[in-house]
């Protein structure tokens, strides 16, 4: 068995093996080289692979993400790192208008094998311009694949699979996860970028989540277990294309669903999940679907305010209890 490692280390290993395995792969981003990556994912890679493969970019998100699109079109396999999801808004044009559209717009003549990684999410008192959860926006866009690795296995395995995808892939790495450690279940991690995973089986209620909300959703499930409630936890992992079959399968068994989403409730990704449950699993449900989401406020700085804004173990547990109608 392999030793325990952090999510960050698993990501670095994934980069190392991608860069080592294919000379077309290069990493482009702000401070990915000499600085070692703002979250230290790429530390040491510059020394190992040199400046042609680990490319420090100026603070030009639109420019270097667009250049990543062009480089992918030109035959390279770029990984573009964006420091944080909020900065990705400066690059929405090349991502949405170009990368996601090009295959269709060109009648299938061109495709964009580009991987874009970015840190996302709140919980570190970084306030309203470094803390948001906008993966649902990206998951809205046809032409993109959207991944949310939440485990060491996924951090290790998803990048290589994303590079093999002939179309653009956006990977959201929750900043709270970088220091989380775990043990790989397989040497290369989990390379599946098409399916959700049941992280905890259970028969009473299905908790559905992804990314940074997975650890606290599992903590909520553990707390519910102490009270005799057997909660299943489904980790979506892939937000587009969405694997609802795994969700329906669990919900058919538990007949109750709680959706845990770190983005804002209004128009958030949980709203899409909820709608699909209504459309396809309505008669399997014994209770209305519950959503646990972030309060409708730009993420505030002060610790107690930030905590109050975000889904917490207690709010997940409370939602599950509501869903169970006081039977637990």
């Amino acid at each position: 068995m392999s030793a325990r490692q952090t999510y960050r280390d698993a990501l670095r290993e994934a980069h190392r093996s991608a860069l080592g395995g294919d000379p077309r792969v290069l990493l482009i981003g702000e401070d990915v080289g000499r600085y070692g990556g703002s979250y230290a994912v790429s530390r040491g890679l510059l020394d190992e692979f040199g400046p042609d493969r680990i490319v420090d970019a100026p603070l030009s998100e639109l420019g270097f993400v667009g250049a990543g699109v062009g480089a992918a079109l030109g035959g390279l396999r770029p990984i573009v790192e964006i420091m944080t999801v909020n900065f990705s808004l400066l690059a929405l044009d090349p991502i949405v208008n170009t990368a996601a559209s090009l295959r269709h717009m060109s009648g299938g003549q061109f495709h964009v094998p580009l991987v874009i990684r970015m840190a996302t999410g709140a919980g570190r008192q970084l306030a309203a311009q470094h803390s948001h959860s906008l993966e649902g926006w990206y998951a809205h866009v046809p032409g993109l694949r959207v991944l949310a690795p939440a485990t060491v296995d996924d951090a290790r395995g998803m990048l290589g699979a994303a590079l093999d995808d002939p179309d653009p892939v956006v990977i959201f790495e929750h900043a709270q996860l970088y220091n989380v450690d775990g043990t790989l279940t397989a040497p290369g991690g989990d390379p599946d970028i098409a399916h959700a995973r049941v992280r905890r089986p259970g028969g009473d209620v299905t908790l559905v989540t992804w990314g940074g909300m997975l650890p606290r959703t599992l903590a909520a499930a553990a707390e519910l277990a102490e009270a005799g409630v057997d909660a299943a936890v489904v980790d979506l992992r892939v937000l587009r294309p969405l694997d609802m079959a795994t969700v329906y399968e669990s919900v058919r068994r538990t007949r109750r669903a709680v959706l845990v989403d770190e983005s804002w409730r209004s128009g958030g990704f949980a709203a899409e999940l909820s709608a699909r449950l209504m459309e396809c699993a309505f008669y399997d449900l014994d209770a209305p679907v519950e959503r646990v989401a972030t309060a409708e406020v730009p993420i505030p700085y002060a610790r107690q305010l930030e905590e109050a804004a975000l889904p917490q173990v207690a709010s997940i547990v409370a939602a599950a209890r509501r869903c169970l109608g006081g039977s637990a």
Partner: peptide
């Protein structure tokens, strides 16, 4: 930016 990337490739 697309042209820059194509030229880089």
């Amino acid at each position: 930016p697309l042209a820059v990337g194509l030229a880089l490739a």
